[in-house]
Design a protein around this nucleic acid. Structure first.
Lengths: 219, 219
DNA sequence: CCACAGATGTGTACGGCGTAAACAATCTGG
DNA sequence: CCAGATTGTTTACGCCGTACACATCTGTGG
Protein backbone atom coordinates (compact mmCIF):
# COMPACT_ATOMS: atom_id res chain seq x y z
CA UNK A 1 0.00 0.00 0.00
CA UNK A 2 1.18 3.48 -0.86
CA UNK A 3 1.78 5.73 2.10
CA UNK A 4 0.69 9.34 2.07
CA UNK A 5 4.25 10.57 1.77
CA UNK A 6 4.93 8.24 -1.13
CA UNK A 7 1.83 9.52 -2.88
CA UNK A 8 2.82 13.11 -2.22
CA UNK A 9 6.02 12.68 -4.18
CA UNK A 10 4.26 11.53 -7.36
CA UNK A 11 2.84 13.99 -9.87
CA UNK A 12 -0.85 13.16 -10.31
CA UNK A 13 -1.26 9.55 -9.21
CA UNK A 14 -5.07 9.59 -9.03
CA UNK A 15 -7.64 11.75 -10.71
CA UNK A 16 -6.21 14.89 -9.26
CA UNK A 17 -3.36 13.77 -7.05
CA UNK A 18 -3.40 14.34 -3.28
CA UNK A 19 -6.45 16.55 -3.44
CA UNK A 20 -6.60 16.70 0.34
CA UNK A 21 -3.29 18.53 0.61
CA UNK A 22 -4.18 20.81 -2.29
CA UNK A 23 -7.48 21.73 -0.62
CA UNK A 24 -5.77 22.48 2.67
CA UNK A 25 -3.13 24.58 0.89
CA UNK A 26 -5.83 26.59 -0.83
CA UNK A 27 -7.64 26.85 2.50
CA UNK A 28 -4.53 28.40 4.02
CA UNK A 29 -4.43 31.05 1.30
CA UNK A 30 -8.11 31.76 1.70
CA UNK A 31 -7.74 32.05 5.47
CA UNK A 32 -4.79 34.39 5.02
CA UNK A 33 -6.92 36.62 2.83
CA UNK A 34 -10.15 36.73 4.78
CA UNK A 35 -9.89 34.80 8.03
CA UNK A 36 -11.91 31.75 9.04
CA UNK A 37 -15.21 33.16 7.75
CA UNK A 38 -13.76 33.31 4.23
CA UNK A 39 -12.79 29.67 4.40
CA UNK A 40 -15.59 28.08 2.42
CA UNK A 41 -15.66 24.57 1.08
CA UNK A 42 -16.97 25.67 -2.29
CA UNK A 43 -14.40 28.43 -2.78
CA UNK A 44 -11.56 26.11 -1.80
CA UNK A 45 -12.79 23.52 -4.31
CA UNK A 46 -13.29 26.15 -7.00
CA UNK A 47 -9.75 27.49 -6.62
CA UNK A 48 -8.38 23.99 -6.68
CA UNK A 49 -10.19 23.47 -9.97
CA UNK A 50 -12.39 20.72 -8.69
CA UNK A 51 -16.13 20.25 -8.22
CA UNK A 52 -17.67 21.49 -4.98
CA UNK A 53 -18.51 18.05 -3.65
CA UNK A 54 -15.12 16.50 -4.39
CA UNK A 55 -13.86 17.68 -1.03
CA UNK A 56 -16.26 15.29 0.67
CA UNK A 57 -14.06 12.35 -0.37
CA UNK A 58 -11.36 13.72 1.94
CA UNK A 59 -13.18 15.68 4.61
CA UNK A 60 -16.45 14.70 6.24
CA UNK A 61 -17.64 18.33 6.30
CA UNK A 62 -16.46 21.92 6.40
CA UNK A 63 -15.44 21.73 10.05
CA UNK A 64 -13.18 18.84 9.18
CA UNK A 65 -11.42 20.91 6.54
CA UNK A 66 -11.11 23.82 8.96
CA UNK A 67 -9.61 21.47 11.51
CA UNK A 68 -7.02 20.31 8.98
CA UNK A 69 -6.13 23.93 8.27
CA UNK A 70 -5.87 24.57 12.00
CA UNK A 71 -3.31 21.81 12.34
CA UNK A 72 -1.13 23.33 9.61
CA UNK A 73 -1.40 26.81 11.08
CA UNK A 74 -0.45 25.47 14.51
CA UNK A 75 2.57 23.83 12.91
CA UNK A 76 3.56 27.13 11.28
CA UNK A 77 3.14 28.91 14.60
CA UNK A 78 5.22 26.26 16.33
CA UNK A 79 7.93 26.71 13.71
CA UNK A 80 7.97 30.45 14.35
CA UNK A 81 8.30 29.86 18.10
CA UNK A 82 11.00 27.27 17.55
CA UNK A 83 12.91 29.74 15.44
CA UNK A 84 12.65 32.26 18.27
CA UNK A 85 14.20 29.79 20.70
CA UNK A 86 17.19 29.55 18.39
CA UNK A 87 17.77 33.27 17.93
CA UNK A 88 21.09 34.82 18.84
CA UNK A 89 21.38 36.15 22.36
CA UNK A 90 23.99 38.59 23.71
CA UNK A 91 26.96 36.65 25.01
CA UNK A 92 28.03 36.71 28.61
CA UNK A 93 24.57 36.08 30.05
CA UNK A 94 23.93 33.67 32.87
CA UNK A 95 22.01 30.53 31.93
CA UNK A 96 19.11 31.80 33.98
CA UNK A 97 19.04 35.14 32.17
CA UNK A 98 19.29 33.32 28.85
CA UNK A 99 16.28 31.16 29.70
CA UNK A 100 14.31 34.20 30.76
CA UNK A 101 15.05 35.97 27.50
CA UNK A 102 14.05 32.92 25.55
CA UNK A 103 10.68 33.08 27.22
CA UNK A 104 10.27 36.74 26.35
CA UNK A 105 11.37 35.87 22.84
CA UNK A 106 8.77 33.19 22.18
CA UNK A 107 6.11 35.43 23.67
CA UNK A 108 7.02 38.17 21.23
CA UNK A 109 7.25 35.66 18.40
CA UNK A 110 3.76 34.39 19.23
CA UNK A 111 2.13 37.80 19.04
CA UNK A 112 4.26 38.70 16.04
CA UNK A 113 2.94 35.62 14.24
CA UNK A 114 -0.63 36.58 15.06
CA UNK A 115 -0.16 40.13 13.79
CA UNK A 116 1.65 39.00 10.66
CA UNK A 117 -0.85 36.24 9.86
CA UNK A 118 -4.11 37.52 11.31
CA UNK A 119 -6.44 35.47 9.12
CA UNK A 120 -4.62 32.20 9.65
CA UNK A 121 -4.14 32.86 13.36
CA UNK A 122 -7.84 33.46 13.83
CA UNK A 123 -8.58 30.09 12.25
CA UNK A 124 -6.90 28.39 15.20
CA UNK A 125 -9.58 29.57 17.60
CA UNK A 126 -12.52 29.47 15.20
CA UNK A 127 -15.59 27.34 15.74
CA UNK A 128 -14.91 26.28 19.31
CA UNK A 129 -12.89 23.16 18.63
CA UNK A 130 -9.21 22.60 19.16
CA UNK A 131 -6.93 19.94 17.73
CA UNK A 132 -5.36 17.53 20.22
CA UNK A 133 -2.61 19.87 21.27
CA UNK A 134 -1.81 21.38 24.60
CA UNK A 135 -2.55 19.98 28.02
CA UNK A 136 -4.89 17.06 28.51
CA UNK A 137 -3.31 15.25 25.60
CA UNK A 138 -0.10 14.87 27.55
CA UNK A 139 0.29 11.24 26.62
CA UNK A 140 0.99 9.81 23.20
CA UNK A 141 -0.52 11.73 20.34
CA UNK A 142 0.85 15.12 21.34
CA UNK A 143 2.63 16.65 18.35
CA UNK A 144 6.41 16.84 18.72
CA UNK A 145 6.34 20.53 17.80
CA UNK A 146 3.27 22.20 19.21
CA UNK A 147 3.22 25.73 20.63
CA UNK A 148 2.29 24.28 24.00
CA UNK A 149 5.21 21.87 24.02
CA UNK A 150 7.70 24.55 23.04
CA UNK A 151 6.46 26.79 25.82
CA UNK A 152 6.75 23.88 28.26
CA UNK A 153 10.31 23.22 27.19
CA UNK A 154 11.38 26.80 27.75
CA UNK A 155 9.73 26.83 31.16
CA UNK A 156 11.53 23.59 32.03
CA UNK A 157 14.75 25.21 30.97
CA UNK A 158 14.05 28.10 33.31
CA UNK A 159 13.68 25.67 36.19
CA UNK A 160 16.85 23.83 35.16
CA UNK A 161 18.85 27.04 35.11
CA UNK A 162 17.45 28.29 38.36
CA UNK A 163 15.53 31.11 36.71
CA UNK A 164 12.27 29.72 38.00
CA UNK A 165 11.53 28.04 41.32
CA UNK A 166 10.26 24.49 40.81
CA UNK A 167 7.16 25.11 42.91
CA UNK A 168 6.17 27.93 40.53
CA UNK A 169 6.59 25.68 37.51
CA UNK A 170 3.26 23.87 37.87
CA UNK A 171 0.76 25.12 35.30
CA UNK A 172 2.93 28.13 34.52
CA UNK A 173 1.94 27.54 30.88
CA UNK A 174 -1.56 28.88 31.39
CA UNK A 175 -0.85 32.49 32.39
CA UNK A 176 1.82 32.77 29.70
CA UNK A 177 -0.37 31.33 26.98
CA UNK A 178 -3.37 33.32 28.14
CA UNK A 179 -1.33 36.50 28.04
CA UNK A 180 0.05 36.07 24.52
CA UNK A 181 -3.28 34.89 23.13
CA UNK A 182 -5.07 37.69 24.91
CA UNK A 183 -2.63 40.25 23.55
CA UNK A 184 -3.04 38.84 20.05
CA UNK A 185 -6.79 38.84 20.33
CA UNK A 186 -7.04 42.38 21.68
CA UNK A 187 -4.82 43.55 18.84
CA UNK A 188 -6.49 41.55 16.06
CA UNK A 189 -10.14 41.68 17.02
CA UNK A 190 -10.22 44.03 19.94
CA UNK A 191 -9.68 47.64 20.89
CA UNK A 192 -5.89 47.67 20.56
CA UNK A 193 -5.91 47.09 16.82
CA UNK A 194 -5.65 50.75 15.89
CA UNK A 195 -2.54 51.53 17.89
CA UNK A 196 0.61 52.03 15.86
CA UNK A 197 2.68 48.90 15.37
CA UNK A 198 5.57 50.35 17.38
CA UNK A 199 3.42 50.99 20.39
CA UNK A 200 1.87 47.54 20.13
CA UNK A 201 5.29 45.94 20.22
CA UNK A 202 6.34 47.99 23.23
CA UNK A 203 3.13 47.11 25.07
CA UNK A 204 3.59 43.43 24.30
CA UNK A 205 7.16 43.51 25.55
CA UNK A 206 6.34 45.25 28.80
CA UNK A 207 3.36 42.95 29.40
CA UNK A 208 5.58 39.93 28.93
CA UNK A 209 8.25 41.32 31.27
CA UNK A 210 5.57 42.02 33.82
CA UNK A 211 4.11 38.53 33.81
CA UNK A 212 7.49 36.86 33.80
CA UNK A 213 8.55 39.00 36.74
CA UNK A 214 5.44 37.87 38.54
CA UNK A 215 6.31 34.32 37.67
CA UNK A 216 9.82 34.69 39.06
CA UNK A 217 9.44 36.74 42.21
CA UNK A 218 5.71 37.16 42.73
CA UNK A 219 4.10 36.79 46.12
CA UNK B 1 -40.26 63.81 18.22
CA UNK B 2 -40.60 60.65 20.27
CA UNK B 3 -37.44 59.49 21.95
CA UNK B 4 -36.48 55.84 22.02
CA UNK B 5 -37.28 55.56 25.71
CA UNK B 6 -40.70 57.09 25.22
CA UNK B 7 -41.44 54.66 22.43
CA UNK B 8 -40.24 51.76 24.53
CA UNK B 9 -42.90 52.44 27.12
CA UNK B 10 -45.80 52.20 24.67
CA UNK B 11 -47.31 48.87 23.68
CA UNK B 12 -47.16 48.68 19.89
CA UNK B 13 -46.88 52.23 18.62
CA UNK B 14 -45.89 51.26 15.10
CA UNK B 15 -46.52 48.14 13.11
CA UNK B 16 -44.66 46.04 15.59
CA UNK B 17 -43.39 48.42 18.24
CA UNK B 18 -39.67 48.97 18.84
CA UNK B 19 -38.67 46.15 16.56
CA UNK B 20 -35.01 47.06 16.91
CA UNK B 21 -34.96 46.26 20.62
CA UNK B 22 -36.97 43.09 20.08
CA UNK B 23 -34.54 41.92 17.42
CA UNK B 24 -31.55 42.59 19.64
CA UNK B 25 -33.24 40.81 22.54
CA UNK B 26 -33.87 37.77 20.37
CA UNK B 27 -30.30 38.02 19.10
CA UNK B 28 -29.07 37.80 22.67
CA UNK B 29 -31.04 34.60 23.23
CA UNK B 30 -29.79 33.13 19.99
CA UNK B 31 -26.21 34.02 20.85
CA UNK B 32 -26.63 32.47 24.28
CA UNK B 33 -27.79 29.25 22.65
CA UNK B 34 -25.30 28.91 19.84
CA UNK B 35 -22.72 31.67 19.88
CA UNK B 36 -22.11 34.27 17.21
CA UNK B 37 -22.38 31.78 14.33
CA UNK B 38 -25.96 31.02 15.38
CA UNK B 39 -26.85 34.69 15.26
CA UNK B 40 -28.55 34.89 11.88
CA UNK B 41 -30.67 37.75 10.65
CA UNK B 42 -33.36 35.44 9.33
CA UNK B 43 -33.65 33.41 12.51
CA UNK B 44 -33.81 36.51 14.66
CA UNK B 45 -36.58 37.90 12.45
CA UNK B 46 -38.42 34.57 12.43
CA UNK B 47 -38.43 34.32 16.22
CA UNK B 48 -39.59 37.88 16.51
CA UNK B 49 -42.49 36.96 14.24
CA UNK B 50 -41.52 39.32 11.50
CA UNK B 51 -40.43 38.97 7.89
CA UNK B 52 -36.78 38.36 7.15
CA UNK B 53 -36.13 41.71 5.54
CA UNK B 54 -37.90 43.77 8.17
CA UNK B 55 -34.67 43.97 10.12
CA UNK B 56 -33.17 46.11 7.35
CA UNK B 57 -35.30 49.07 8.47
CA UNK B 58 -33.31 49.10 11.72
CA UNK B 59 -29.92 47.62 10.86
CA UNK B 60 -27.98 48.18 7.68
CA UNK B 61 -26.84 44.55 7.59
CA UNK B 62 -26.09 41.54 9.73
CA UNK B 63 -22.86 43.02 11.09
CA UNK B 64 -24.82 45.99 12.31
CA UNK B 65 -27.16 43.75 14.27
CA UNK B 66 -24.23 41.81 15.68
CA UNK B 67 -22.65 45.10 16.72
CA UNK B 68 -25.82 46.08 18.55
CA UNK B 69 -25.80 42.75 20.37
CA UNK B 70 -22.14 43.28 21.23
CA UNK B 71 -22.98 46.56 22.90
CA UNK B 72 -25.60 44.92 25.10
CA UNK B 73 -23.32 42.04 26.01
CA UNK B 74 -20.56 44.49 26.92
CA UNK B 75 -23.03 46.29 29.14
CA UNK B 76 -23.99 43.02 30.84
CA UNK B 77 -20.32 42.21 31.32
CA UNK B 78 -19.69 45.68 32.74
CA UNK B 79 -22.58 45.17 35.16
CA UNK B 80 -21.06 41.91 36.34
CA UNK B 81 -17.70 43.59 36.90
CA UNK B 82 -19.34 46.51 38.66
CA UNK B 83 -21.11 44.07 40.97
CA UNK B 84 -17.76 42.48 41.74
CA UNK B 85 -16.33 45.85 42.78
CA UNK B 86 -19.14 46.14 45.28
CA UNK B 87 -18.77 42.71 46.85
CA UNK B 88 -18.14 42.36 50.57
CA UNK B 89 -14.51 42.16 51.62
CA UNK B 90 -13.13 40.94 54.96
CA UNK B 91 -12.90 43.83 57.38
CA UNK B 92 -9.63 45.05 58.81
CA UNK B 93 -7.80 45.20 55.51
CA UNK B 94 -5.57 48.08 54.51
CA UNK B 95 -6.90 50.24 51.69
CA UNK B 96 -4.09 48.95 49.50
CA UNK B 97 -4.99 45.33 50.20
CA UNK B 98 -8.65 46.13 49.54
CA UNK B 99 -7.79 47.63 46.15
CA UNK B 100 -5.69 44.63 45.28
CA UNK B 101 -8.51 42.24 46.14
CA UNK B 102 -10.92 44.29 44.07
CA UNK B 103 -8.65 43.78 41.09
CA UNK B 104 -8.53 40.04 41.65
CA UNK B 105 -12.28 40.12 42.06
CA UNK B 106 -13.09 41.77 38.77
CA UNK B 107 -10.62 39.47 37.04
CA UNK B 108 -12.46 36.46 38.42
CA UNK B 109 -15.80 38.04 37.59
CA UNK B 110 -14.68 38.60 34.00
CA UNK B 111 -13.73 34.98 33.40
CA UNK B 112 -16.77 33.83 35.35
CA UNK B 113 -18.99 35.83 33.02
CA UNK B 114 -17.31 34.30 29.99
CA UNK B 115 -17.74 30.77 31.33
CA UNK B 116 -21.35 31.38 32.38
CA UNK B 117 -22.31 33.10 29.11
CA UNK B 118 -20.02 31.50 26.54
CA UNK B 119 -22.14 32.20 23.50
CA UNK B 120 -22.78 35.83 24.34
CA UNK B 121 -19.19 36.40 25.39
CA UNK B 122 -17.89 35.05 22.09
CA UNK B 123 -20.08 37.56 20.25
CA UNK B 124 -17.98 40.39 21.69
CA UNK B 125 -14.92 39.32 19.76
CA UNK B 126 -16.69 38.00 16.67
CA UNK B 127 -16.13 39.35 13.19
CA UNK B 128 -13.12 41.55 13.89
CA UNK B 129 -14.90 44.74 14.87
CA UNK B 130 -15.24 46.31 18.27
CA UNK B 131 -17.66 48.94 19.53
CA UNK B 132 -16.15 52.25 20.64
CA UNK B 133 -15.13 51.04 24.05
CA UNK B 134 -11.74 50.79 25.62
CA UNK B 135 -8.69 52.89 24.88
CA UNK B 136 -8.50 55.17 21.85
CA UNK B 137 -11.99 56.42 22.54
CA UNK B 138 -10.83 58.07 25.71
CA UNK B 139 -12.67 61.30 25.01
CA UNK B 140 -16.38 61.83 24.89
CA UNK B 141 -18.40 58.92 23.63
CA UNK B 142 -16.88 56.35 25.95
CA UNK B 143 -19.64 54.49 27.76
CA UNK B 144 -19.96 55.37 31.45
CA UNK B 145 -19.91 51.66 32.33
CA UNK B 146 -17.58 49.76 30.05
CA UNK B 147 -15.36 46.88 31.17
CA UNK B 148 -12.33 48.95 30.23
CA UNK B 149 -13.42 51.90 32.32
CA UNK B 150 -14.16 49.77 35.36
CA UNK B 151 -10.75 48.17 35.11
CA UNK B 152 -9.19 51.62 34.84
CA UNK B 153 -11.03 52.81 37.91
CA UNK B 154 -9.81 49.91 40.02
CA UNK B 155 -6.25 50.44 38.84
CA UNK B 156 -6.53 54.13 39.73
CA UNK B 157 -7.75 53.13 43.15
CA UNK B 158 -4.70 50.93 43.55
CA UNK B 159 -2.48 53.91 42.82
CA UNK B 160 -4.48 56.10 45.20
CA UNK B 161 -4.14 53.61 48.03
CA UNK B 162 -0.47 53.02 47.42
CA UNK B 163 -1.00 49.46 46.22
CA UNK B 164 0.50 50.33 42.85
CA UNK B 165 3.39 52.64 42.04
CA UNK B 166 2.26 55.47 39.76
CA UNK B 167 5.00 54.75 37.20
CA UNK B 168 3.61 51.23 36.81
CA UNK B 169 0.12 52.54 36.22
CA UNK B 170 0.61 53.50 32.58
CA UNK B 171 -1.07 51.01 30.28
CA UNK B 172 -1.50 48.53 33.09
CA UNK B 173 -4.91 47.80 31.58
CA UNK B 174 -3.49 45.83 28.69
CA UNK B 175 -1.77 42.96 30.51
CA UNK B 176 -4.76 42.58 32.84
CA UNK B 177 -7.30 42.60 30.05
CA UNK B 178 -5.16 40.36 27.88
CA UNK B 179 -4.85 37.89 30.72
CA UNK B 180 -8.55 37.61 31.52
CA UNK B 181 -9.55 37.52 27.87
CA UNK B 182 -6.85 34.96 27.15
CA UNK B 183 -7.97 32.81 30.05
CA UNK B 184 -11.58 33.03 28.89
CA UNK B 185 -10.64 32.19 25.34
CA UNK B 186 -8.45 29.23 26.26
CA UNK B 187 -11.26 27.88 28.41
CA UNK B 188 -14.10 28.53 25.95
CA UNK B 189 -12.50 27.80 22.60
CA UNK B 190 -9.14 26.41 23.51
CA UNK B 191 -7.46 23.48 25.17
CA UNK B 192 -8.44 24.28 28.75
CA UNK B 193 -12.13 23.76 28.15
CA UNK B 194 -12.18 20.16 29.36
CA UNK B 195 -10.65 20.79 32.76
CA UNK B 196 -13.05 20.49 35.69
CA UNK B 197 -14.63 23.78 36.68
CA UNK B 198 -12.93 23.70 40.06
CA UNK B 199 -9.50 23.44 38.53
CA UNK B 200 -10.28 26.19 36.05
CA UNK B 201 -11.21 28.55 38.86
CA UNK B 202 -8.05 27.75 40.78
CA UNK B 203 -5.92 28.30 37.68
CA UNK B 204 -7.64 31.60 36.99
CA UNK B 205 -7.07 32.75 40.53
CA UNK B 206 -3.40 31.86 40.60
CA UNK B 207 -2.84 33.43 37.20
CA UNK B 208 -4.42 36.64 38.39
CA UNK B 209 -2.36 36.67 41.59
CA UNK B 210 0.75 36.10 39.53
CA UNK B 211 0.15 38.97 37.13
CA UNK B 212 -0.88 41.36 39.87
CA UNK B 213 2.23 40.48 41.81
CA UNK B 214 4.25 41.26 38.71
CA UNK B 215 2.40 44.52 38.45
CA UNK B 216 3.17 45.42 42.05
CA UNK B 217 6.73 44.30 42.64
CA UNK B 218 8.01 43.15 39.26
CA UNK B 219 11.49 44.03 38.03
C1' DC C 1 -4.05 -9.80 -18.88
C1' DC C 2 -8.19 -8.33 -17.59
C1' DA C 3 -12.41 -7.66 -15.21
C1' DC C 4 -14.15 -6.07 -11.09
C1' DA C 5 -14.39 -3.60 -6.66
C1' DG C 6 -13.24 0.25 -4.33
C1' DA C 7 -11.56 4.88 -4.41
C1' DT C 8 -12.11 9.32 -6.37
C1' DG C 9 -14.43 13.16 -8.84
C1' DT C 10 -19.03 15.16 -11.17
C1' DG C 11 -23.85 16.83 -11.63
C1' DT C 12 -27.90 17.90 -9.67
C1' DA C 13 -30.81 19.23 -6.05
C1' DC C 14 -32.53 21.11 -1.56
C1' DG C 15 -32.88 24.27 2.08
C1' DG C 16 -30.71 28.11 4.61
C1' DC C 17 -28.34 32.33 4.52
C1' DG C 18 -27.62 37.71 3.46
C1' DT C 19 -29.52 41.21 0.91
C1' DA C 20 -31.48 44.12 -3.01
C1' DA C 21 -35.89 45.95 -5.08
C1' DA C 22 -40.64 46.75 -5.65
C1' DC C 23 -44.71 47.00 -3.14
C1' DA C 24 -48.18 47.56 0.85
C1' DA C 25 -49.64 49.15 5.22
C1' DT C 26 -49.41 52.43 8.82
C1' DC C 27 -48.37 56.60 11.22
C1' DT C 28 -47.80 61.67 11.67
C1' DG C 29 -47.27 66.59 10.70
C1' DG C 30 -49.48 70.26 8.31
C1' DC D 1 -57.90 64.76 6.44
C1' DC D 2 -54.44 64.01 3.28
C1' DA D 3 -49.41 63.69 1.67
C1' DG D 4 -45.18 61.94 2.64
C1' DA D 5 -42.24 59.55 5.61
C1' DT D 6 -41.75 55.28 8.29
C1' DT D 7 -42.14 50.53 8.78
C1' DG D 8 -43.02 45.82 7.25
C1' DT D 9 -43.89 42.15 3.24
C1' DT D 10 -43.05 39.69 -0.99
C1' DT D 11 -40.22 38.16 -4.31
C1' DA D 12 -35.86 37.15 -6.22
C1' DC D 13 -30.78 36.32 -6.69
C1' DG D 14 -26.52 34.21 -5.66
C1' DC D 15 -23.81 32.21 -2.13
C1' DC D 16 -23.23 28.43 1.16
C1' DG D 17 -23.12 23.35 3.13
C1' DT D 18 -24.34 18.97 1.98
C1' DA D 19 -27.02 14.62 0.43
C1' DC D 20 -27.56 11.46 -3.46
C1' DA D 21 -27.03 9.28 -7.79
C1' DC D 22 -23.81 8.71 -11.36
C1' DA D 23 -19.24 8.60 -13.92
C1' DT D 24 -14.41 7.65 -14.04
C1' DC D 25 -10.10 5.93 -12.77
C1' DT D 26 -6.87 2.42 -10.65
C1' DG D 27 -4.80 -1.32 -8.29
C1' DT D 28 -5.44 -6.20 -7.57
C1' DG D 29 -6.73 -11.10 -7.68
C1' DG D 30 -8.30 -14.77 -10.82
Amino acid sequence: MKTASTTARMARPYHHGNLADALVAEGLKLAAEGGPEALSLREVARRTGVSATAAYRHFTNRDDLVMAVKVVVLARLAAALRAATRSRLPSGLTDAEQARRRLVGIGQAYVEFAITNPGQYRVIFADAAFPGDGPGAEGDDCAPDSPYRILSEVLDQMVATGALAPERRVDAELPMWALVHGLSSLILEGPYGHRPRREQKALVRSSLELVISGLQDGA
